[in-house]
């Protein structure tokens, strides 16, 4: 089954991670944007990450897309720490230096739109770590995120070094899904009172 769809953005798409894209992903992981994160040395580890990306999506723990524009993998957009019951998730974009603010914004918007529509996720968080590019903040602002809290020393960058984390949120204005009981739908398998046409 396919849980992560390919979604169009201007000039390209965001798409599920695939073993064919491992060279592009390796390039990305050689240029980590997160303070304190070491460049990846072993390309083989990405095979496992791609496996995880499928498992994460299948179990609603997260979702990962590669950002591809002009035929090149320029970044990744991901949702993690997904809490379906609380309708919330934390988003993240990792990009190569050539990923533009516009591409970052478009990728984030496409992922958020999908998660919001398909899974009714309402509360999107993003953690910007001190030392990261201000381009990320520009993209967040463009997507409607606002600063909620500054977590002091929330990110460890070395043995005894830490950076502050700014936590941003965007809350969807869509109504929450209304909880229903089994049988409320027109699914015959659950609604024992319905006839074959689905009428009660």
């Amino acid at each position: 089954m396919k849980f992560t769809p390919e979604l169009e953005i201007p000039g390209g798409c965001i798409k599920p991670l695939h073993y064919d894209d491992i060279d592009g992903l390796f390039e990305l992981y050689k240029h980590p944007e997160i303070p304190g994160q070491r460049p990846l040395q072993d390309k083989e580890q990405l095979n496992r990450m791609i496996d995880y990306s499928v498992q994460m999506a299948a179990t609603q723990r997260g979702m990962m897309w590669a950002i591809e524009t002009e035929g090149q993998i320029k970044g990744m957009v991901s949702g993690f720490d997904w809490q379906p019951s609380n309708l919330r998730i934390v988003m993240r974009v990792d990009g190569l230096p050539q990923l533009t603010v516009e591409e970052r914004t478009a990728s984030l918007k496409a992922a958020i739109s999908f998660l919001s529509t398909k899974y009714h996720v309402r509360n999107f968080a993003y953690q910007w770590i001190e030392g990261q590019s201000d381009d990320i903040k520009a993209a967040l602002s463009e997507c409607g995120f606002t600063l909620a809290a500054r977590l002091r020393d929330g990110w460890r960058t070395g043995n005894t070094e830490f950076s502050d984390v700014e936590q941003y949120h965007w809350i969807s204005s869509e109504n929450k899904p209304v909880p229903r009981k089994l049988g409320d739908d027109d699914e015959l398998g659950q609604n024992l009172n319905a006839n074959k046409r689905g009428e009660s």
């Binding site: 609380n86 919330r88 309402r122 509360n123 968080a125 600063l147 909620a148 809290a149 500054r150 977590l151 002091r152 936590q167 949120h169 809350i171």
Partner: peptide, 8 residues
């Protein structure tokens, strides 16, 4: 440090 909205 701030307020996280709609956490539950």
């Amino acid at each position: 440090e701030g307020t996280l909205p709609s956490q539950m």
